[in-house]
Amino acid sequence: MSLLELPSTRAEAWRWADLGALSAAAALAPVAYGQADHFLDLPGARLLFVDGVLDAGRSELGPVVLADLSGHDHPLGRHAQGRGWSLRLAKDAAADPVQIVHVATGAENHLPAEIVLGGDATAQVIETFVGAGWSNRATMIRIGAAARLQRSVRLLQGAGFVSLREDVELGAGASLVAVFLGAGAAGSRIDGGVRVGQGGYAELGGALLTSGTQRQECAARVHHAEPDGQSHQLWRAVAADRSVASLAAAVEVARHAQKTDGEQSLRGLLLQRTATVNLKPELEIFADDVKCAHGATVGELDRRALFYMESRGIPRPRAQALLTRAFVGDALDRIADETVRDAFAADADAWLAALL
């Protein structure tokens, strides 16, 4: 893909984007992938995509079908069109968890997806990214009235870049809880837009863990279009060495979206002062009867806590790992499924063990 087709970092929404890493990832030479499937011990559908193509012999589709998808108007998402996966549940339906593993073996691959839930339907979708290359995804999500979706995404690629575009629309009283963890060595960009209907509930968050010269970023925007909606964004970033982690979270409240409750919590932790964490909370409110708040802080590990733990015989690397793990823990605790939550915690612990 030509650099001319990529967004410009002159645009505010892309000011921290590492587009050079994206282009380099698209040019990575082919690499082999093993037999590990990276699925968690859960019932339900299992889909394995290698370079954006379904490995039918190692997949069980369940309620998921393959379909031709299009319609994304986004600088990166528009490239992810064509054959993709679709999960559609009828009114009142409830499905076992759907697991999707994406393996990249070099170069670039694009894949669209859609999740459409009828009224009062319930679904859980877990996605995992591994390998090397540029993995580009665009997901359209429509959640009907009073339907509920739990979405968990693990970014574990060892090299390259992962770009995600999420377009979400919540119906009246619908609920979305989405948690992302960037714990691989690849660069990443999580780009989300959520429209909350009347009485809808949206919870977005997760943790970006960066080291070396790695760069990860998230740009999430929640638009409250109707009254009585709630949204909570809780993001954590941990940066080591000369890496960069960037979090931009915005809440928009339409003029007639009274009684909106919007909250943002952005926190960054620097493991070395050579690292960088960028935080940008943003509120744009046109209604006058709302409850909205945001907070953003960047700091280092508490030296007094480290001293106390060392004085009790805990080695310094272990003390640093415990404090860092506690820092990101509240972002991962939003995952309701214990098996998935434990997997995310293990991913964060593995990242810390390799670093400290």
Rank of each mutant, 00 (worst) to 15 (best):
V101R: 03
L89M: 05
A26H: 02
A287P: 08
I314R: 01
L28C: 11
L204F: 03
V130F: 00
R325M: 15
G205E: 04
L323K: 02
L170E: 01
A354Q: 13
A249T: 11
F161K: 01
G187R: 01
A147M: 07
L356N: 12
A207Q: 08
D330K: 03
K291V: 13
G52S: 10
V290G: 08
R242T: 11
A254K: 11
H294W: 06
F161Q: 06
W14M: 05
G171L: 06
H232Y: 09
A287S: 14
N109T: 11
S163D: 09
R151F: 13
G160I: 09
G131Q: 03
D342C: 12
W16E: 06
S135P: 01
S152V: 15
V340K: 02
S8F: 05
E338T: 15
Q157W: 00
V31E: 12
I100E: 00
Q81W: 04
A237I: 07
S265H: 08
R83S: 13
R318I: 12
L66P: 04
V101Q: 06
V179P: 02
H224E: 01
A159S: 14
A275C: 08
G52C: 11
A257E: 05
D18N: 15
G44W: 03
G131V: 02
R316Q: 12
A107R: 15
P227W: 01
V251H: 07
I100Q: 01
L22E: 03
V130H: 00
L69F: 08
V64L: 07
N278F: 05
A104E: 03
D92S: 11
R78C: 10
G200M: 04
L356E: 12
L19R: 10
I190A: 00
S311G: 15
D167L: 10
L111R: 02
S311N: 15
L181K: 02
S175E: 15
G144N: 02
A287D: 11
G229Y: 01
V194M: 05
A95V: 14
